[in-house]
């Protein structure tokens, strides 16, 4: 039941943290390059999520024994 998708919020928060570190003039160039590369990766994930066009809709069901499960809702 856990999420399979990366979290937009996490990506955005990480990206902001990376940008802040990169903007620190004391960071050395090797580290800056690392940060930049990671930032680009996160940016890509965030943009993919932004461009996602398919909404997932599930129906919550409860079995007789109280177990909760979900199935795809027909639309």
């Amino acid at each position: 039941m856990t999420r399979e998708k990366p979290s937009f919020r996490d990506e955005l928060e990480q990206l902001e943290a990376i940008v802040r570190q990169l903007e620190d003039p004391d960071v050395d160039l090797d580290r800056a390059l690392e940060l930049f590369e990671e930032g680009v990766r996160r940016l890509k994930v965030a943009r993919t999520l932004l461009e996602q066009s398919e909404l997932t809709v599930k129906r919550v069901l409860q079995d007789a024994d109280g177990t909760i499960r979900t199935d795809e809702l027909e639309r």
């Binding site: 999420r3 998708k5 937009f8 999520l49 932004l50 996602q52 066009s53 398919e54 909404l55 997932t56 809709v57 599930k58 129906r59 919550v60 979900t70 809702l73």
Partner: peptide
């Protein structure tokens, strides 16, 4: 904003 899971509790 389709990047969500919508769980319908009927």
């Amino acid at each position: 904003w389709p990047a969500v899971e919508l769980w319908v509790v009927p």
